[in-house]
Design a binder for these strands. Structure first.
Lengths: 193, 193
DNA sequence: AATATTATGACGACTGGTCTACATATAATA
DNA sequence: TATTATATGTAGACCAGTCGTCATAATATT
């Protein structure tokens, strides 16, 4: 379900997602998206009568969903929350460096630009964050965390990752990611003091 | 030094900062900035020959500096790092709710949109984050934190706050801030288990 | 009076997103 | 098979908006 059939519609969505992540939502014109996807101008409004906003929402959903899948798979394989974080960190660092710190979180920029102006994009973003939170919560539950501390901790993990990714991108170093993850891991393994 | 004399130059900077925070950098036209500041088009290029990018950098520096001052003052008054975080949280929550979740971090959106494309804006952002980190580090040092854990923790705090603010804005709730700050406070007060 | 500094708004080359009208392909119906 | 019907894809016009430049006017400073 991740990489769908290469219809024009999907070409548009993924081209948009890529560009939005690097240049932001407002900074990306429909021209860019069309050029990157090789789709003709008029076809866009055939697939997305809602125009740019609808493409934005679809891009957030698609890119966010890909991250959700990565999270879920990693959570299954990892040996507890702390190990999960370290594995994900490794991926993150590789992606960041491979793109010369151009590819950060695929949805934050778009969401910050359009919140709370666009309800469609906002809804898509909230749904994605909810999915991520659920994966984290399941993982914490499986590590026998106390029920009442699961939801807050899941949120804190996502917040920490998002913030660290932002700092890393701006500073052009992966150090903030390591620092933040180290702090999170301290919380996740209270045993190893 | 916070609210400078009301010259045209400063009017432009603060109008730009306000608009960039709410609508993003690309989403804000010079038109909007000029209208909001009541300055004529040509005057803009008198004060900022570098055009929009230079205004962006100036806005990041100005808005970021204001936050630095708030941090510094709060750090002086607060009773330790955890108390500092709780006080700042109270401010943050008030600002967010007062603006109907429109006013988030005044520099993140602009930075995400322009990094690493614009070196001028990027440099301004890095300088601001460095200042913030220094305030946090000083505070941790005064709380007798071990030297080698100060810098990472300072980064983790900023990352957590940034991420929490992002989530709060998108979700339209202040809950993520409380959750994240609670986690950070657990790290800052290892005594109260 | 002569010279900097500050301030101005019209202009141009271009891009923004959106729309309407048209062409083709696939499928359903008669 | 012939004829609709529906989905898919295309082309270009449209105007408000983008940023930046310029020649000029008003004001300060010497």
């Amino acid at each position: 379900m991740a990489i769908e059939k290469k219809s024009q519609r999907d070409s548009l969505i993924w081209a948009a997602a890529k560009l939005f992540r690097r240049q932001g939502y407002s900074g990306t014109g429909l021209r860019d998206i069309l050029a990157a996807s090789g789709v003709a101008r008029g076809s866009l409004y055939h697939y997305f009568p809602g125009g740019k906003e609808q493409i934005g929402a679809a891009a957030v959903t698609a890119a966010g969903g890909l991250v959700t899948e990565t999270f879920a798979e990693l959570a299954k394989q990892a040996d507890g929350p702390a190990d999960f974080l370290r594995c994900y960190t490794a991926l993150l660092v590789r992606w960041l460096e491979a793109s010369d710190f151009q590819d950060g979180c695929p949805i934050t920029t778009t969401l910050l630009e359009t919140t709370p102006g666009s309800t469609a994009i906002g809804d898509a973003g909230r749904a994605v964050f909810a999915d991520w939170g659920e994966v984290m919560a399941d993982m914490l539950a499986q590590a026998d965390w106390p029920q009442d501390r699961i939801a807050p901790m899941a949120t804190a993990i996502i917040a920490g990752l998002e913030g660290a990714l932002l700092l890393a991108r701006v500073q052009g170093t992966v150090q903030p990611i390591h620092d933040t993850v180290a702090a999170l891991c301290t919380l996740l393994e209270p045993t190893a003091a």
